[in-house]
Design a protein around this nucleic acid. Structure first.
Lengths: 90, 90
DNA sequence: CGACTTTACGGGTCGCGTAAGTATA
DNA sequence: TATACTTACGCGACCCGTAAAGTCG
């Protein structure tokens, strides 16, 4: 499980379809599909129901989304805090 | 910044030297050095002081370690929770 | 049948391990 | 000079994008 995949997952969840998310993320749709598939494989869980007009979070997906937000926030906070330290010399 | 690098960072911090951590992590020392270098590059911060007999956390390193633990825990929790769901069918 | 997702496939890049180099006590 | 970290380098694996195929309302 990698942070990039989590970011991708969040983007798709927010947009509701893979194609649009791919444009936003500046990658091709197939690559995005693969990331999600891999994530689902690692978690052994389906995160999205595939519909004709996009995707929709499953119950597991909704739960994972909460963790995803928490993780992303932690990371952003860490980065900001630590990077900030270097600009305050000693 | 990737989760793997964070795990590696934690392992080194706990052991106090890169070589031993590499053995535990089942990768070669140079690979581990590179991961940490990259992490330091991304954070624009030195995380370890390199000593003759291993490495030691800097102040920034100690701070980052706290975030690292939090992130790793969140991820472990998410994985466990979500993977667990799949075994409880509907 | 139209919009979206998935699979196939070749190509480029990134990361790994081995080996050589550097530094410090 | 012994121990540990770093840099060099060649190779294999992984990931990406394009193109083709599949799926569902």
């Amino acid at each position: 499980m990698e942070l990039r995949s989590i970011h991708y997952f969040v983007a798709i969840a927010e947009v509701g379809n893979i194609s649009t998310a791919a444009v936003k993320l500046r990658i091709a749709q197939p690559a995005l599909t693969r990331h999600i598939k891999q994530l689902e494989g690692e978690l052994n869980t389906i995160l999205f129901n595939r519909l004709a007009r996009g995707v929709q979070l499953t119950a597991s997906g909704r739960e994972f989304l909460e963790y995803a937000y928490r993780i992303v926030n932690e990371v952003a906070q860490a980065r900001q805090e630590i990077t900030g330290l270097s600009s305050k010399p000693k």
